[in-house]
Design a binder for these strands. Structure first.
Length: 414
DNA sequence: TCTGGGGTCCTAGGACCC
DNA sequence: TCTGGGGTCCTAGGACCC
């Protein structure tokens, strides 16, 4: 999809059409997530700090992202893909590989398939899309990039190297800033230059996997097939604060908030994770991670939070200002319907989490939250609407000190 | 200019096992 | 007393992608 977030926003607000638009965070620490082609003319591109984008393009219209909406539209786009072929491999929210070899008998040629897919997207969703056609995934990916905006590019079999070799190495899928700098030292400017370097030199410079990988790509070789139904391997929640946060108390509260969100996403996805990771970025942008593997998988906020808190203490953050805090899980197992219980976790925590999920489904995501996360919210709400889950989950001293009657119960107000 | 949020994959060292 | 070869899992960091 072309400038996907921007184009989805334009459907909701036609005044954005034809103007330079950036979707992204408007605050001091925001970056551009998606830029319209009118904005790109001014040198605005994704991942650029928004303050810089604004300076480059004073007329820029800035729109806050609505990821839920993009996910909905994405699902509609993928439905169109799957109406052509079941072999669809999603690469991100707005792009996918389609293996259309099964459509050979239905269409005169692949250009006709591409035209049909684009027409369907245009007709049902009013969105522009571009298509790259090739015999391998990576050539198709590169071709789609050069087909944008709103175009089609086919690279016929046998012409792969002719297509690739004149292009700058930086355009090769998998070559970013660091690899680009390494290659520049080897005197490599184009993909053709890359193809002329001995594989051993590339491996020595870039490592085993990357060396062999790029050597193959530069020759147009890519044996990867289109893999539908790939499962997620990790899930995470992170946030960069407008103003740095400081001190364990605040860090723990924020970690609880993140753990709660992450738990909701795990449960909605029907998976549990066994390894918990935390990520801390300090004010100087240095970033550290810590992780620990649990005895069994979990999707419960309390378990994730406890691990995250433990990892936080290992980090010795002290009073250093923190700009980003994150938590994630990996080692995802499909929930089989029968949830595996961690040794030290009574079933009531699962029941509580189910109850919280029910309340949120009925009354909205903000209807219930740990008291610690609610902060001073008590004065704003009748006591009866507050969740008990909170006073315990948020307690830094653990449950041992919490009297039985104050522990959450699955059939209580929660 | 001052750097989001969500992912995937690779490397390298160490623990542990046979 | 000094030492193999192979494997798996865990952890931390980094590159890359959209």
């Amino acid at each position: 999809m072309d400038a996907f977030f921007v184009e989805v926003e334009r459907l909701a607000d036609p005044s954005l059409v034809g103007r330079p638009v950036a979707v992204g965070g408007a605050g001091d620490r925001g970056v551009v997530a998606s830029a319209s082609y009118e904005a790109r003319v001014h040198g605005v591109h994704s991942a650029m700090p928004m303050t810089f984008a604004r300076r480059r393009c004073p007329d820029l219209r800035i729109v806050a992202p609505d990821h839920r909406r993009y996910a909905e539209v994405s699902e509609q786009v993928f439905e169109i893909f799957r109406s052509f072929t079941p072999i669809v491999e999603g690469l991100s929210v707005d792009e996918a590989f389609l293996d259309v070899s099964g459509l050979r008998l239905l269409y005169s040629d692949t250009d006709a398939i591409a035209a049909d897919i684009r027409a369907q997207i245009r007709a049902t969703l009013s969105l522009p899309a571009s298509v790259g056609i090739a015999a391998t995934k990576f050539i198709a990916k590169m071709a789609s990039g050069r087909a944008k905006p709103d175009g089609v590019l086919r690279v016929p079999s046998g012409t792969e190297t002719a297509f690739l070799h004149p292009l700058p190495v930086g355009e090769l899928w998998g070559v970013g800033a660091a690899t680009y700098a390494s290659l520049a030292q080897l005197g490599v400017a184009t993909i053709g230059d890359l193809a002329s370097i001995p594989v051993a030199s590339l491996v020595a410079r870039l490592g085993d996997a990357m060396g062999h990988h790029l050597a193959g790509l530069s020759r147009g070789e890519d044996r990867r097939s289109v893999e539908p139904d790939t499962k997620a391997k990790s899930l995470s929640v992170e946030h960069t604060y407008e103003v740095d946060i400081t001190g364990y108390d605040v860090l723990e509260t924020e970690m609880l908030r993140h753990s709660d969100r992450l738990s909701g996403r795990l449960r909605r996805a029907g998976v549990s994770g066994r390894t918990v990771h935390i990520k801390v970025r300090f004010s100087d942008f240095s970033t550290v991670t810590r992780s620990m593997t649990l005895a069994g998988g979990t999707d419960v906020a309390r378990d994730i939070y406890r691990a995250a808190r433990e990892l936080l203490t290992r980090l010795d953050v002290g009073s250093r200002p923190v700009r980003l805090l994150g938590v994630g899980v990996s080692g995802l197992d499909e929930g089989t319907g029968v949830r595996q219980l961690a040794v030290d976790r009574p079933a009531k925590w699962d029941e509580l989490a189910d109850a919280v999920a029910d309340v949120r489904a009925r009354y909205g995501a903000d209807s219930v939250a740990p008291a610690r996360v609610r902060g001073g919210g008590a004065a704003m709400e009748p006591a009866s609407s507050r969740s008990e889950f909170a006073s315990d989950v948020g307690a830094s001293e653990g449950d041992e000190n919490v009297p039985e009657e104050h522990r959450p119960s699955p059939d209580g107000n929660s």
